[in-house]
Structure formats: structure tokens, C-alpha cells
Amino acid sequence: MTTKVIVLTVLVAAALARPEPPPTYGPPAPAYKPPAHPRPAYGAPAYPDTPPQYNSQYAVRDDYSGNDFGHDESRNGYNTKGSYYVQLPDGRLQKVTYYVNGDSGYVAEVSYQGEAQYPAYQPAPAYQPAPAYKPAPAYKPAPAYP
């Protein structure tokens, strides 16, 4: 019986002395497996393939600063036409009229209205410095009487 106890003790000791593999760390296995091709919860919007069609225009006129410019354009499918204008500093009005028909590209015609005006040079008035600073008179206390 002592032999059996010794063998059993040796086996238990060997089993306890066996090296354990190191623990592995990482994310836990997901409990939920997503579908291979998820579908949106809503129906995808359908955008019809329609050719663009619009009209737009704007104009700015400011007499104080002299700004005067504007633009108008209309488009129907691949055909576009429009114009824009700007008041130039020399007094003329520059106007550009353009069109695009399909793949023809941008075709523009530039015209000017008015005569360029270049007024004679007027030098700025000569610099006149401000009068020099003069400090206020020093304080003189009034006499004190007993």
C-alpha cells in the first residue's frame, strides 16, 4: 500500500508541477454575428436623372462706392446662356454675353459702353503737421492765511 500511495503522490505532484500555458488576452468573441451584407433600415432614395433647368439673376448698384455689377443666366439641359456686366474704374461699362450649347464650349462676346475717362492728375494737398503739444501750466497753490 505504501507503494500505491507513493505512486499516487508522485502523479499528483507531476500533474500540479506541469507548466500552464500563459493566458491569452484579447477581445472576447462576439456574441452577435452581423449578417454578411447588412441592409439599410430604410429604402434608398431614388433620384431621377433629369437634366438641369434654372434661371438666376442678381444686380448690385452702390452710388457711394461706384460699384455697379450684375449677372443673369438661364440653363435648360446642356444649353446655357447668360450675361454679366461691371462698371470699370475708367467709367466704361463692360458687358460679357455668353452661351454654351452642349459640347461646343464656352463662347463669349465682350463689349464696352461709354468712353474711358482719365481725369487730370491732382496732387494731394501738402502735409500740414498739427501744432506742437504745449503742456498745461504748473499748479500753484493759493496762499494759506492763519
Results as ranks from 00 to 15, higher is better:
I6F: 08
A13V: 09
L16M: 15
L16W: 13
A17F: 09
P19D: 12
P21T: 09
P23T: 02
P23A: 10
P23H: 07
G26V: 00
P27I: 10
A29G: 03
K33G: 05
A36H: 06
H37N: 14
P38H: 02
P38K: 02
P40R: 01
A41D: 12
Y42V: 09
G43E: 14
G43C: 06
P45S: 09
A46K: 10
A46S: 14
T50F: 04
P51F: 02
P51V: 07
P52W: 02
D62Q: 07
S65N: 15
N67A: 15
D68N: 14
F69V: 10
G70S: 04
G70M: 01
G70R: 05
H71W: 00
S74I: 09
S74K: 14
R75T: 06
N76F: 12
Y78L: 15
T80E: 01
G82I: 00
G82Q: 03
S83L: 07
Y84C: 05
Y84E: 00
V86M: 13
Q87G: 06
R92M: 01
R92K: 12
L93W: 01
T97Y: 00
T97G: 03
Y99R: 06
G102Q: 02
V107F: 03
A108N: 08
V110K: 08
S111Q: 14
A116V: 07
A116M: 10
Q117H: 15
Y118Q: 11
Y118D: 10
A120N: 13
A124C: 03
A124N: 10
Y127E: 03
Y127S: 02
A132S: 09
Y133K: 05
Y133M: 05
K134P: 00
K134W: 07
P135K: 09
P135A: 15
A136F: 08
Y139K: 12
A142E: 11
A142V: 07
P143Y: 05
Y145P: 05
